[in-house]
Simulated scan of single mutants.
Amino acid sequence: MRPMGRVFATVAFIEALTWAGLLIGMYFKYHAADPTPVGVRVFGPLHGIAFMAYVVVTLLAAVRLRWPWWAAGLALLAAVPPLVTLPLEWWFKRRGLLGRQTA
């Protein structure tokens, strides 16, 4: 995997991780027997930062790794529903869109 591909994979993982934290935080805020907003207060801003970083890294990766337009669009759309960046990153890796390792 090329360095930009590694950066994309890492940021995609972080974006999904913060999504999961935010979802868990929302559960405890709205559905728990003893509601607490601390999870949303912590993971809300973290996910906002991770989302913005993912968008920037996706655009950079699309240019540097010369993705086709559909791959860049799909990568950007993957950030909207929860946890979709992980399977997208795995699929991109299998298709070689994150770059092949040079010997």
Rank of each mutant, 00 (worst) to 15 (best):
R66L: 12
V56N: 07
L88P: 05
P87C: 13
K93L: 12
G44I: 10
T10N: 08
A32K: 07
M1I: 10
V63D: 14
A53M: 06
V38T: 12
T18A: 11
I14P: 03
L98W: 00
F43G: 04
F8D: 03
V40Q: 05
W67L: 08
G25M: 00
L60S: 02
W91L: 06
L22V: 00
G44F: 04
A12W: 01
L83M: 09
A20L: 10
M26N: 04
G5L: 00
A53F: 04
G44A: 07
F28V: 11
A9K: 10
W69A: 15
R64S: 08
A62L: 02
V40L: 12
G21E: 04
V80L: 15
H31M: 15
T36V: 14
T10Q: 11
A50S: 12
A20Q: 04
A103S: 11
F13T: 09
G48M: 07
L77H: 04
A33Q: 11
V84S: 11
M52A: 14
V55P: 00
L74N: 00
V38H: 14
K29G: 03
L76V: 10
M1K: 10
R2N: 15
E89N: 09
P35Q: 01
M52V: 10
V11E: 00
L86S: 09
Y54S: 05
P45E: 01
P82F: 14
V38S: 13
R64M: 07
F8H: 05
A50T: 09
L74K: 10
T10Y: 09
H47V: 06
G96A: 02
A32E: 02
V57M: 06
L22R: 02
F13R: 12
L97H: 05
A61V: 03
P68R: 15
L59R: 12
Y54C: 06
A79E: 01
T18I: 03
A79P: 00
L46A: 09
L46I: 03
A53Q: 02
G25R: 03
T10D: 05
I49T: 14
L76M: 10
T10I: 11
L77D: 05
M1H: 05
W19C: 04
G99W: 01
V7F: 11
L59N: 11
M4C: 01
D34E: 15
M26W: 08
Y54W: 02
A103V: 13
M1D: 12
I49V: 11
F28C: 11
A62M: 04
I24S: 12
I24H: 13
G25Q: 02
I49G: 07
V57C: 06
F28N: 13
V55N: 02
A61K: 00
T18W: 03
V7D: 07
W70Q: 05
V42C: 02
T10S: 14
T36S: 15
R66D: 06
W69H: 12
L98D: 00
F43C: 08
P45R: 06
G21Q: 07
H47C: 03
R2G: 08
W90Q: 10
V84H: 13
G5T: 02
V38R: 13
A62R: 04
L98G: 08
L86R: 04
P82V: 13
